[in-house]
Design a binder for these strands. Sequence first.
DNA 1: TATTGTTATACTCTATAACTATA
DNA 2: TATAGTTATAGAGTATAACAATA
Lengths: 178, 178
Amino acid sequence: MSMHAYPAVSLPPADADYTGDAMSNAKPDPAAHGLDQSSLSHVLGYQLAQADVPVKKIFFKYIGQPLQLRPVEFTILMLIANNENVTQKQLSQALAVSAPNITILLDRLAERELVTRVRNETDRRSQHVLLTRKGATLARKAHEVSLTMEQEVLKHLSDAERGMLIELLQKVARHRRI
Amino acid sequence: MSMHAYPAVSLPPADADYTGDAMSNAKPDPAAHGLDQSSLSHVLGYQLAQADVPVKKIFFKYIGQPLQLRPVEFTILMLIANNENVTQKQLSQALAVSAPNITILLDRLAERELVTRVRNETDRRSQHVLLTRKGATLARKAHEVSLTMEQEVLKHLSDAERGMLIELLQKVARHRRI
DNA sequence: TATTGTTATACTCTATAACTATA
DNA sequence: TATAGTTATAGAGTATAACAATA
């Protein structure tokens, strides 16, 4: 009656019969705050959420605070910067953010004069979203900072581990294609 | 000032700088929805959000809907089930959820008669959170289902890859200080 | 004075429906 | 009739401050 479908590697904390006392572990997870998390160690969603805590904190330190950008806003700027004539519909689909939410997000960015909307003349229902000069400058800065930020996020991982982590996450994300 | 999660985004191309590894033969995906997302491929928070999309979807199918538990509620039940005399403060820290939010979450679980609070007699400021009989039954069921759920979440990964992914996420989570 | 937990408040994200303007 | 985008609204999540009880 094994709890884990996959083989234990070096770090995972406990096995199926582990019932008590998280502190008896040689390397207790600091994130656990002394709690036994063995019944959650196989739950990917839990591990994603735990990993997201320091990642968000570091994002806020490097980009959120200094550049006044939330993650979704940062992502939108990156996508607009790298895609000519992107429409709101495309952003909505690519970001899996509802159309009303995209409207509100772009309203806010437009109010800060970071983006503008230009009506698509070949199909006047849609609009192209563009960076202003100010927006392009901020996007460039944000991308630059993101490179430094990732060094802190992943500083305890080797280059091979970083690549492996990204690749495995993308493999999981591939489910979304369904 | 609240930070909202990275948006759910479709797959970006694989990291071009990653020199590869025998463990995975993943190849770059065609840009989703015709958008170039390469400027985000190195951003871990973005990759976490992507992976979280199918993970959440499958969670709701297996646990969220059938057992009427949101992810944070599921997690709380698991932690209470495996930790005697856990306090709200411990839950708050372990889950990185604010104290007021823990209060509200436990209020809701208590209203469903899944948990009870018992004043700690040695330090009457704190309370121990316990599962009721009904809560223990639900927690057992939820844990059982979570094992099946993970098989679907990770069905595209080999056993070695699953272990590696969990291990790497825990390594990132270890950044947490507090 | 500090800590545990609660209450109150405000702001954000999300989901949905209804609306417009175009096609 | 279908699509792109907007507006309106309600629900849920979370952050913060102020507060109570206890240490």
